[in-house]
Every structure is written in structure tokens, then in C-alpha cells.
Amino acid sequence: MAQYLTLEFIAMLTGFILIIIGLWGMITQKNLIKLVIGFSLFDTGLNIVIVSMAYVKNSTAPIIDKAVDVSQAASKIADPVPQALVLTSIVIGLGVTALMLAYVLRMYREKKSLDINSYTDLRW
């Protein structure tokens, strides 16, 4: 049990539960805006998981200044690569959210409804 009581494990657990909540919201909710919210939660959860993988025990931020010297950097810092990828992912997440909301607005203009059940045109 004690091996699980670490910072990165707790963060990863939070991230995974957040992913499941977001997925569940996307599946069960009927409101289009709620779908976008579910996507947003899913995105945040995924980012938390990736950042928690980058954490090395007792490490500090990968930025060299007075507190962290160049010579001992490799033994003190967290992994910079996943952090850089997450940075990219968050910005793209905003782009995708804006795009989805533009679609929602467009769909609302067509049918005056936010309920997903009223969009049956392509149903099989």
C-alpha cells in the first residue's frame, strides 16, 4: 500500500478518474455543450497523466537558475520532454474546443435545439 502513496501515483489516479468522468459525460449527456465540457475534462485528465509520468522523485522544475546548478541539473530536475509535449497539447486543446463550439453554434442556428436527439439526419 505504501508504495502507492506517492505524489505521482495520486496525480496519475486523479488524471485517470478525470478521463473516465469525461468519457462518461461524453457518452451519457444529451446536451451538445455538455459534450464539449466532457471533452475538455478528458483533455485535462490526459495532460495530468502525462505530466505525472514526467515527475521524478523529489525533483524540481527543469529550469536552471540560482537554485539549480548546471552541473547537478541531471540529478535534480524533472523530465522536460513530456512537459513540452503537454504544452503543445493544451494549446491544441483550446483550438479544438473553439472549433467544436463553433460547430455547436452552427448546429444550433439550423435546428434551434441543443439536444443531440434532434439531430437525426444521418441516423442509420
Binding site: 521524478v56 536552471i64 548546471v70 541531471a74 540529478s75
Partner: peptide, 25 residues
Amino acid sequence: GSNELNPLASYYAEKGPTEVGAANL
């Protein structure tokens, strides 16, 4: 969890400051 950096990250951590010159890795 990991106790030390993987090889790629430690390459960046060791060589980054001299190769790129940025304090923020």
C-alpha cells in the same frame, strides 16, 4: 514512478545548457 531520468532526458539535461544555451530546458 521513476527514481532517475531516462537516457534521453538526461542527455537533454546535460547537453542542453551548453548546446542550446537556454536556462529553461
